[in-house]
Structure formats: structure tokens, C-alpha cells
Amino acid sequence: MTAPTAPRNSINWFKYAAPARFYPLAGRAVVWFSVLAVLLGALGLFIGFAVAPTDAQQGDAYRIIFLHVPTAWLSMVIYVAMAFWAGVGLVFNTRLASMMARALAPTGALMTFLALWTGALWGKPTWGTWWVWDARLTSELILLFLYLGFLALHASIDDERRADRATAVLALVGVVNVPIIYFSVQWWNTLHQGASVSLTSAPSIATPMLAGMLISSAAVWCYCIAVVLARVRLIMLERERHASWVQRELQGHGASPLESSPSSPPPGAPT
């Protein structure tokens, strides 16, 4: 009796765990997500600034939500994704997972910075101050420090694999801050307003406002995916520069092959 075999038309996603196979897939995805980011961004801004009505209490100052809310959401989502890939790389010792975590960190830091800055722009006309040590604002600021700490720690360790392990521990420890950010307005009496969109209740904002915010969020999602995939491709070329597939890729684009640094393992050496 023979063992059952997988259907021929099934997709083996595990084969893309190899950098050589993931690299071209990521390149194609960058193009599609970049186009979607531009189209959705233009549509979201049009709805947000030309279609959505003026808020009765906040006036036109509320329109900052079309950038503030998406970046705030993504700042938390990206950190969870970064911690996930860092944990996968730590447990299973997979190179691509650690590369993904490293590629996510700068974009997550950017989203967190934009969330804090746009929140300050919103807070001045709404609260009368640029900054307060509110629970959500403070925990979001801690999130920015975690991203910067991840990047600084990785850059301070010369050995890439040791840097991956050290930053993975930091990312996994810091993930506890994400639920604190999300539930801070429920756990403490904070100045920050509660969520306008919830899975358990109807939206508390007008339909055009909601549509503009969701479309803008989708645009920011696509932008982040495109940027992270483009960055991980560069990290692959840097860290796999001794591999034959990188040399072929560079020669195929007319670039000169990268020379391995003295600290780089020779071709065929275990990593």
C-alpha cells in the first residue's frame, strides 16, 4: 500500500522559506502593492478631504485621522509581525524569518513616529496641548523606543546570527506593550478618546468618514508591505552575498558581483 501523495496542483508554500525562491516572489509583490498603495491612497484622501463632512465638535481638525488612525494601527500590527518573525527565527533558526523581522523594524518605527506626530497635531486644537502623559500616548512612545532599541541592538552586534537572537528576545519581551496600547483607554481614565471602529459595536462616525479611514488604512497597509518586501530583498542580497544565486541575480541586472567580506563564510559553508 503506497502512501498518499499531495495533489500536483497544490502549492508548497514552504519552498519560499528559501531566500533564493522568496526573492523573485517578493519583487513581483512589491510592484503590485506599490500600485495599490498609490491608488488607494489617492482615493482615501479624496474621500477624506472632499467627500467626508466637517465634524460638528472638532471641525476640520478631525481629518488628521485619515493618516493618524492607519499609522497607529500599523505601528502595533507591524510590531506583532516583527516579534512573530523574530520568534520563528529564534526557535527554528530560519534565516528568512530573521530577515523579515529586521526589515519590518524601520517601517514600524516610521509608523509609530507618524502616529505620535499626527496625534500631537490633532491634540493641539482638540485638547489645547501638543502632548500629555496620557496612558496611550506614553505606551505608544515606549513602542517607538522598542523599535529604535531593536535597530540599535542589531547594529551594535557584528555577528548577524547573534544579532538576530538578541533582537528576537527584545522583540518578544516588548510585545507585551501592544495590548497595553490597545486597551489603555479602557483600563485607565485617559484623555485619549475611545475607538470609533469596533468589531463588537456599530461605528460611531459617519459613513463617508469611515470609508475614507478604511481606504486610507488599506493604502498604508499596501505601502508598508511594499516597503518591507523591498527592504528584505536588499537584506537578502547583503546577507547572502556569498551565495551563487545572488551573483547570478546581480549579473543578470548588469551589476558587478559582490565580493565576500573577510568575515563572510565561503560559498557552501553552513550558516
Rank of each mutant, 00 (worst) to 15 (best):
S10R: 13
V91M: 08
M111W: 01
I235K: 09
F92C: 10
N93T: 12
T71V: 04
T71I: 01
R136S: 01
F49I: 03
I64V: 07
M99E: 10
P4F: 06
V232Q: 10
V51Q: 03
A61I: 00
D55Y: 00
L43I: 12
I235W: 13
A103D: 05
S244V: 13
L229M: 11
A218H: 03
V77C: 10
A42P: 01
V185C: 05
P53C: 04
F33I: 08
L191T: 07
N12Y: 12
T94N: 13
D159M: 05
L39H: 05
Y182W: 11
G89C: 03
G44T: 03
F183Y: 11
E249S: 05
I235P: 12
G48Q: 00
A103G: 06
L141V: 03
E160F: 13
A29Q: 14
M111P: 05
V227P: 07
Y79C: 04
P125C: 02
W73C: 06
G89K: 02
D158F: 04
G27F: 10
L45W: 04
P24V: 08
F183D: 06
Q251I: 12
R165Y: 06
P7C: 15
G27L: 10
A3T: 14
G252D: 12
Y62V: 04
A81H: 04
A243L: 13
V173L: 15
V232F: 08
A120M: 11
A29N: 11
A152W: 12
L114W: 02
Y147E: 03
E249M: 08
W127K: 05
V132G: 06
L199V: 07
F14S: 14
A109K: 08
E238W: 04
S264Y: 08
N177A: 09
G44E: 01
W117G: 13
Q58K: 09
A6H: 15
A230D: 05
A6C: 09
F150N: 08
V197L: 11
A56E: 10
Q247G: 11
L151E: 09
K124Q: 13
T94S: 14
M213I: 03
M111L: 08
L143F: 04
T54K: 11
G194W: 00
V31H: 06
A115I: 02
P125E: 03
R231Q: 11
M99T: 05
V77W: 07
L148F: 15
Y16V: 10
F92L: 14
F22L: 11
L229E: 09
A18P: 10
W32T: 10
A171I: 12
Q57W: 06
R165D: 12
V178I: 13
A29H: 08
N177D: 15
A101S: 13
L199F: 08
